[in-house]
Design a binder for these strands. Structure first.
Length: 573
RNA sequence: GACCUCUUAGCUCAGUCGGUAGAGCAACGGCCUUUUAAGCCGUGGGUCCUGCGUUCGAGUCGCAGAGGGGUCACCA
């Protein structure tokens, strides 16, 4: 990056950086800085009677600054929040030399710079808890201006709100928008709480392959990659179900994994190509047991994050208090449409779906039709956490057939705020049935379903040896986090959501210009005027370019020797 | 992938009927020793997303493209 390409403010900051160095101050010191107090703790615990928090050190970013002659107030932001700092010239410069205040603090430091302050806490006349600085240390000079967000009485002015910028530069979002940090802290609280719950129950956290030779455990298009040494196609996992089941075969009673999964499908506010699921498998249990477990676990999570089971999500207050409502899928459909479809065959289902205004096509079998009706007519209306049980067998090739109802499997999903948050089964452990189900999937694939599951011989082999009756669960961590943090987009609960790359403008290097006889010192100026490649100069109007270049030279006081109009004309040929 | 919509200063945004761009904050120069979005006076800062077209003249109109957001489709 050359100097003249920088904005005015960036240039000034770089100049300040040099000035600081000239004063013998290292703007990026190597030595550790001992922080002994944090903004939030000071604000919560300072007691003016006791005069605690004396001789403390804090460190953070300068967020606002108000300078009044020999004294100044600054707001410092550390990892926990903001606190005001009072800096008076004669406190930080007790001797004759007032450079640290007059020059360094007043002139050379900017908003966004990171400093350390040592001093005593007191309360100002206006009642604000403030650190009175005795020492000030420059810890990091920032050479790019921060977006400026102002706040008064909890009201935000000029918020840094462009979603593109916020997601591409999440670090800025985190600095400037405090609620963002809160969301991500709560995300980690959520996984910690869940992990704690599972560990207390004695289940083992494990890790299984992300690169898989055969993708399985869900219906989705995968990301495909290639391993050179093995000369083999590998897929990024879409789920880890089949590996965790192998571990149950291997004799573990309960295993779980927080699993980054990858699905090569559309993106919207509920979908990101990589996302996180927690999958849990417990031997000798069934799906009724698993419903109790999910209720208990999610209730605990709500309590750990919010201290209550009630969570505000948009306009809705969602109460995770046990027990949750339970519907079979047929009951739910009857409840919301008034139609009992439990005895219907494929043709009648198709007609019913059409009557309800749902588009159908020939590739849709019985199970898919039922699923569509449910998805269209019921799901969005389920706001309070609700279990939907007993799904059609066609949609669930890894779930055990229902103990008493033909054509159904022992499966449930928990729906909350109109969206699925988890999916669980009594796992299919009959190896013969499992093989047949995979073969049905192959037929579906031939019928044109490009998300049908692949047949995994190695997994079938494992099941042949005998997997105990097992209940399994997959719970969407991003979705659950969205609900628990009142976020309406998945991008708000992922630090770095997937984005298209920013377009790079093609820029020629300086030697391409010098080859044409253009002096090197003019190259950055020419580029600043929009001619990023030598080729593009052919489109330039030489007279205008000549004027512009001399203008920049004069305006920027660069002291370069102006080229002649003829020189410039030659450059443009 | 389709449709709708947005893109102007470091940030948030105005910009009328087509006439070479404005505000607040931030920055810079002043005044000011406890301010509360501190204030007051002054100054600088722009590839109006990109390209092409219409026009004497385009931030503004048309077409194409890029990126973002929303809705739909697919999915969790």
């Amino acid at each position: 990056m050359s100097y003249t390409e920088l904005s005015e403010q960036e240039q000034l900051r770089r100049k300040s950086l040099e000035e600081i160095k000239k004063l013998g101050i290292n703007p990026y010191p190597a030595k550790k800085y001992d922080v002994t107090a944090y903004s939030k703790d000071i604000k919560e615990n300072y007691d003016d009677e006791k005069k605690n928090f004396q001789n403390i050190s804090i460190a953070g970013r300068i967020m606002t600054r108000r300078i009044m002659g020999k004294a100044a107030f600054a707001e410092l932001q550390d990892s926990k929040g903001k606190i005001q700092v009072y800096i008076s010239r004669d406190d930080i410069c007790p001797g004759e030399d007032k450079t640290l205040y007059n020059t360094v603090f007043k002139k050379l430091l900017d908003l966004g710079d990171i400093i350390g302050v040592k001093g005593n806490v007191f309360i100002t006349k206006t009642g604000e808890i403030t650190v009175k600085a005795k020492e000030l240390t420059v810890l990091t000079k920032s050479v790019r201006p921060l977006p400026v967000v102002k706040e008064k009485d909890g009201k935000i002015y000029d918020a840094f709100s462009d979603p593109e910028q916020r997601y591409r530069m999440r670090y800025l979002d985190l600095i400037v928008n405090p609620h963002v940090k809160e969301t991500f802290i709560n995300r980690t609280k959520l996984t910690n709480s869940m992990r704690e719950y599972l560990n207390t129950k004695g289940y083992l956290e494990v890790e299984t392959p992300i690169l898989q030779p055969i993708y399985g455990g869900a219906a989705a298009r995968p990301f495909k990659t290639h391993h050179n040494a093995l000369n083999q196609t590998l897929y990024l996992r879409i789920a880890n179900e089949l590996y965790l089941k192998r571990l149950i075969v291997g004799g573990f009673d309960g295993v779980y994994e927080f699993s980054k999964d990858f699905r090569n499908e559309g993106m919207d506010r509920f979908h990101n190509p990589e996302f996180t699921q927690m999958e849990l498998y417990v031997a000798y249990k069934d799906y009724f047991w698993m419903m109790d477990t999910v209720e208990e676990m999610v209730e605990k999570i709500a309590l750990d994050i919010h201290g209550t089971t009630k969570v505000q999500v948009g306009k809705n207050t969602i109460d995770f208090k046990r027990p949750w409502k339970r519907y079979t899928m047929f009951e739910a459909i009857e409840h919301f449409t008034g139609i009992d479809i439990s005895e219907m065959e494929e043709e009648e289902l198709r007609e019913t779906a059409e009557k309800l205004g749902i588009e159908t096509d020939k590739s849709m079998g019985k199970g898919k039709l039922i699923d569509e009706i449910f998805g269209e007519k019921c799901e969005a209306q389920l706001i309070q956490p609700t279990f939907i049980t007993d799904y059609p067998v066609e949609m669930s090739p890894l779930a055990k057939k229902h103990r008493s109802k033909d054509g159904l499997v022992e499966r449930f999903e928990a729906i909350c705020n109109g969206k699925e948050i988890c999916n669980a089964y009594s796992e299919l452990n009959d190896p013969i049935d499992q093989r047949e189900r995979f073969e049905e999937q192959l037929l579906l694939a031939q019928r044109g379903d490009d998300e049908a599951m692949m047949l995994d011989e190695d997994f079938l082999k494992a099941i042949d040896y005998g997997m105990p009756p097992t209940s399994g669960l997959g719970i969407g961590i991003d979705r659950l986090t969205m609900i628990m943090t009142n976020s309406d987009s998945i991008q708000d609960v992922l630090f770095f959501p997937q984005m298209r790359p920013e377009k790079k403008i093609q820029i020629d290097s300086a030697d391409k210009y010098t080859e044409k006889g253009i002096p090197e010192e003019w190259v950055t100026l020419i580029q600043k005027l929009g001619f990023k490649t030598v080729e593009s100069l052919k489109n330039a109007k030489p007279g205008k370019l000549f004027n512009d270049l001399c203008g920049l030279n004069k305006k920027g006081k660069l002291g370069l020797k102006n080229p002649s109009a003829d020189d410039v004309k030659k450059w443009c040929e």
